[in-house]
């Protein structure tokens, strides 16, 4: 163990540097902001390309509708804010971006309960459901800062609306050597035959840790990073159901309407198997540190281990 692991990083940190690189590589970007560019890291783009940066102040509705208008002039528009403030402009996103299928990339940062101390109003636990309900939107939840950069690049290269969900908490880097993120393709991080853990975002490292623990007791868990939530890799889900016979879905999002619900719907018609869900238990959050909130909400490797054991126990 002599190699140095990369320092933990928050997925939000990828945005500014990636936008600068993409513009330097010849993309035709415009970046709009609603007074959070320093926090989302988008503001770094302003220093390099001030003429391609438009500030809207704390006015998210105006920002998203204007982003849509800007995109009709042929630009690839990146619009970023905190996840909860994007929800503030849901109707604008629906009518001005989703319905006309415009080329706007929405990067929502500080998503989930790991935003921590700011408390319940700042903790977006329903954004995946909201954006997955908008036709034409691709929804990506990167697992680390490397995959976040890949998500921004993928969005810039793919016409049409995207939502990319990033977070504030520093997390372990899973892809130090690079990642090939593809729309509608899960990334199998660990092979296994006894159970499959489908995870996104912050839950991917926790799924890998859980798989390690399970292996110590002789259970071989497959781990799928389902960063592409929409489109969803239904083939990988069916293969997981067929090969492992039990599935756990882990996400930092409300259980009622998140990735777990989407996976269950896909499998219900194709190959139903016992499933368990590690997710925010249909309640709002509170103040605390990121790790305390993850514990309160039941989003730890231990919870995944327990869910995997339950799913396996329900196999016939």
């Amino acid at each position: 163990m002599t190699t140095t692991a990369p320092a933990p990083a928050a997925t939000r940190e990828a945005l500014g540097p990636t936008l600068i690189r993409l513009q330097n590589e010849g993309h035709d970007l415009v970046v709009v902001d609603a007074d959070l560019g320093a926090s989302t890291s988008a503001r770094r783009f302003k220093n390099e390309f001030p003429e391609r940066w438009f500030e809207f102040g704390a006015a998210e509705q105006d920002m998203f509708s204007a982003a849509a208008g800007l995109s009709t002039m042929g630009f690839t528009v990146f619009a970023s804010t905190f996840a909860v403030f994007a929800e503030h402009a849901y109707d604008q996103i629906r009518m001005n971006i989703a319905q006309p299928n415009l080329n706007v990339k929405i990067v929502i940062s500080h998503a989930g309960v790991t935003v921590g101390e700011d408390g319940a109003s700042a903790q977006s636990i329903e954004d995946i459901a909201l954006f997955s309900s908008l036709m034409n939107f691709r929804v990506i939840v990167p697992a680390d800062v490397v995959e976040a950069a890949a998500a921004h690049e993928l969005a810039a290269k793919t016409p049409g609306p995207f939502m990319i969900r990033t977070g504030r908490s520093r997390e372990r880097v899973i892809y130090p050597d690079g990642v090939r993120l593809q729309l509608g393709k899960a990334d199998m991080l660990r092979e296994g035959t006894d159970v499959t853990i489908v995870a996104i975002g912050t839950m991917v490292t926790r799924a890998l840790d859980a798989a390690e623990t399970l292996a110590n007791s002789g259970i071989q868990a497959r781990v799928l990073n389902m960063a592409s939530v929409r489109p969803l890799d239904e083939d990988a889900l069916v293969a997981a159901a067929r090969d492992t016979g039990a599935i756990v879905v882990a996400e930092e999002h409300i259980a009622l309407t998140g990735l777990g619900a989407m996976c269950a719907q896909a499998l219900a018609t194709k190959l139903p198997v016992p499933m368990e869900f590690v997710a925010v238990p249909n309640r709002y959050g509170e103040s605390g540190t990121s790790s305390e909130l993850m514990e309160i909400m039941g989003l730890t490797p231990e919870h995944i281990v327990s869910a995997a054991q339950s799913a396996i126990a329900r196999k016939r």
């Binding site: 105006d62 982003a67 009709t72």
Partner: peptide, 24 residues
Amino acid sequence: DNTAGALGMGLSFGLGISLGARLR
């Protein structure tokens, strides 16, 4: 040139077009 129905969004959408036209 725009999708509409919910009121109040057109001026923002038009502003985006205007900023884009100027940048072009």
